[in-house]
Amino acid sequence: MRPLDEELRELFRRKEPPAGFEERVLARLAGHGQRGLALQPGCHDRKDPLGGPRASQALTPGPQSRSVLSVLTSFWTQKTRKIVLARWLAAAAACVLIIAGVVRYRHEQRMRAQAEQASRQAIMALQFAGTQLDMALQQANQAEAEALSPLQHLQHLEVIFNERNR
């Protein structure tokens, strides 16, 4: 007849670790000191860098099982290596694709800019040529307008001749 809080407190009361825990920690520490290895964060399945007795090792059965375990471990290690290698390759391929894409994009941009510049220059040249043609045409028209026809020329000569004879 206890409240849930009390039941939970009872459920989660502190427990002492199995006997020999302290010695196992110190043994791992000694292994660390002897090998001069840096401690790394890890878990149950990670190869112990310290060489000391882990709780999981205490639970492992005899030598035959251990060899099976080592085979399994090596299999997992190889598989893990393959997975890691495949990931690296995939990442490298992705990087190459991205770089190639960027290079191609920039090349296309450059080509497009050059084409736009060339078209602008061609339009400007055509505009300039058109203006020149217009001016020539105007001059020609003006000259034609100012020029005398043959009949007017004869009449003009006749007037000059008559004035001299008088």
Binding site: K15, P18, V25, L39, C43, L50, A55
Partner: peptide
């Protein structure tokens, strides 16, 4: 007791909890 209990209550695996506790102390 504190370190081991936290680990064992959370993981519910004595061996795994001891490994975690050992690594914490290291």
């Amino acid at each position: 007791a504190m370190v081991y209990s936290l680990a064992v209550h959370f993981l519910r695996d004595a061996a795994l909890a001891e490994d975690v506790a050992q690594e914490v102390f290291l």
